[in-house]
Design a protein around this nucleic acid. Structure first.
Length: 487
RNA sequence: GGCCCCUUCGUCUAAUCGGUGAGGACACCAGCCUUUCAAGCUGGCAGCAGGGGUUCGAAUCCCCUAGGGGUCACCA
């Protein structure tokens, strides 16, 4: 039997890192097992679902390289892959349950239910449904329907016995059936609830393994009961641990960057995010930290997934990102830089081949010093514009000093003779100048760097000079002379 | 509150059948390197939640306590 797994996001928000990690584990498992990855859209929440979120989720998945074999944009034999397009399938199953008395209509209004819950809460009882409509007569039902009363459909849950979930990660988990009340399977708007639609779709789509977050573990017995009533066999379950925010609470917007989209905009590389997320809750064994996707696929197995929730730590993500930033081909990083450079107005329009090469050279110099693509852009301004900012504090320190102007002037003089204008010749010139002026090399390099870049830290000075070219270097040194005078 | 899950350095984690000086990574600190800042290299700090058992021997098995998380929605 071929493995079929599914990732079933609901388009009610952006794809967050918890969701991606779940998607990743599904994807790795499918690839490792030679199985299929299905993407299903659980969009039964009419109020909150939106087309915009759907697009973002699909884009995020594709950006990360987590492709799917069946689903939106891919098609497949088990469609449709949107729950809102599967209504007739659910209706068919509802009818069976209703006809056999395994489900019933409930006319209690949300207000009534809320009141019941409040009463229960006051008595210290769990907030469960009273069962008021459990045994309505046929006549009562017809009357209420005729009166136009809204209703939901509830599943009649057996009060005796227990339901056992055999979880690949947690082991055997037992629930007493009496703790469940008759839960809703069809909402008053006619749409199925999550537990209902999910159980049906997993069965109809022939999903073999349901790999999802631990928050669903408590829902699993309900789905198993449903499968039993529906006559479906249950898939194998694997509940992966949750990802928690640094304050140990459940992830939410107030925790800063939590969506894939945000990391992308920040300049995190997809492979860094994947690598980081893979290490959260799973270990490839040994002392591996940096691991590429092919190795992950080869090594992935659910029994190496841990049981405890993990807290995400941006520092490690950032470290991995700087690693990939530094080691990936500069041509590829150059391409990825384009939107960032455009955003900062450092480039515009289509790049010529020459410009592409220049961007790559800049990237190659700057990336050693920073951790994200955005930081590459921030650290590259002086390579793209004459109108770059000068660090005021450093200016005061290095240009405000007695004799600063003279040093800058001397640097300009000596460099104007540097021919060809290359690292070795420049190096010799600067060294000679340091000897002539009896100044340590740093007293020359630092002002020069400040003059050329507006800051005192950055890539190798000689590399900056050669990439900028003689003309710009001399021009900026002239400008710096004036800045010294105007102190 | 009921039910369920979980508990190894600050964080992510490793430790085949119980026998380890409890290993690695990020972060942090120090040194080296160095024209700046990084990177890199070397070293350091730091952990088995607590208590009972079982055993010659427990991070590992059992029980209790504590703590954290999840769930109990006409959200998924």
């Amino acid at each position: 039997m071929t493995v079929r797994v599914r990732f079933a996001p609901s388009p009610t928000g952006e794809l967050h890192i918890g969701g991606v990690r779940t998607a990743l584990f599904n994807w790795l498992f499918a690839r490792n097992q030679g199985g299929k990855m299905i993407l299903r859209i659980d969009d039964t929440d009419q109020q909150r679902s939106s087309q915009k979120f759907l697009q973002t989720i699909l884009d995020s998945m594709q950006w990360l390289g987590l492709g799917w074999d069946e689903g939106p944009r891919a098609g497949g034999d088990f469609g449709p892959y949107f729950q809102t397009q599967r209504l007739t399938i659910y209706q068919e199953e509802v009818k069976k349950l209703l006809d056999s008395g395994k489900a019933y209509l409930c006319f209690c209004s949300p207000e009534e239910l809320a009141r019941q819950k409040e009463i229960n809460a006051q008595k210290g009882l769990p907030p469960r449904y009273s069962g008021a409509c459990r045994n309505l007569s046929y006549q009562e039902i017809e009357e209420k329907k005729k009166a136009g009363q809204n209703y939901v459909i509830r599943l009649r849950v057996p009060e005796e016995g227990e339901t056992v979930v055999e979880d690949l990660i947690r082991g055997r988990v037992t629930f007493e059936n009496k703790i469940f009340d008759d839960f809703i399977i069809v909402k008053s708007d006619g749409f199925p609830t999550y537990n209902f639609a999910s159980a049906i779709d997993d069965a109809k789509m022939e999903i073999t393994h349901v790999i999802r977050a631990e928050e669903h573990l408590s829902n699993t017995p309900r789905q198993q009961i449903l499968c039993g009533q529906l006559g479906f066999s249950t898939p194998v379950y694997a509940h992966v641990p949750m990802i928690l925010a640094p304050d140990h609470s459940k992830l939410s917007k107030r925790h800063g960057a939590t969506s894939v989209q945000e990391y992308r905009e920040m300049g995190i590389l997809p492979e860094a995010l994947i690598n980081y997320l893979a290490l959260l809750g799973w270990s490839p064994g040994g002392d591996r930290e940096v691991i590429n996707i092919e190795e992950m696929i080869a090594l992935f197995s659910l029994d190496k997934v841990g049981k405890n929730a993990s807290i995400y730590d941006l520092k490690k993500l950032t470290w991995l990102n700087s690693h990939y930033l530094r080691t990936k081909e500069k041509e590829l990083i150059g391409e990825m830089m384009v939107p960032f450079l455009q955003k900062e107005k450092m480039i515009s329009g289509e790049l010529t081949e020459e410009e592409k090469t220049y961007v790559e050279q800049v990237v190659d110099l700057v990336r050693e010093k920073v951790k994200t693509l955005q930081e590459v852009a921030d650290a590259s301004i002086y390579f793209f514009s004459e109108d770059f900012p000068y660090d005021q504090a450093e200016m005061a320190k290095h240009f405000g000093r007695e004799g600063a102007e003279l040093v800058i002037k001397e640097i300009g003089n000596t460099l104007s003779d540097a021919e060809p204008f290359q690292k070795e010749t420049i190096k010799l010139k600067l060294k000679a100048l340091s000897d002539n002026l009896s100044l340590p090399l740093s007293k020359i390099n630092i002002p020069a760097r400040l003059a050329l870049t507006g800051r005192t830290m950055g890539p190798d000075l000689l590399d900056i000079m050669t990439l900028l070219g003689k003309e710009k270097v001399l021009q900026r040194l002239k400008k710096a002379e004036l800045l010294c005078q105007g102190r």
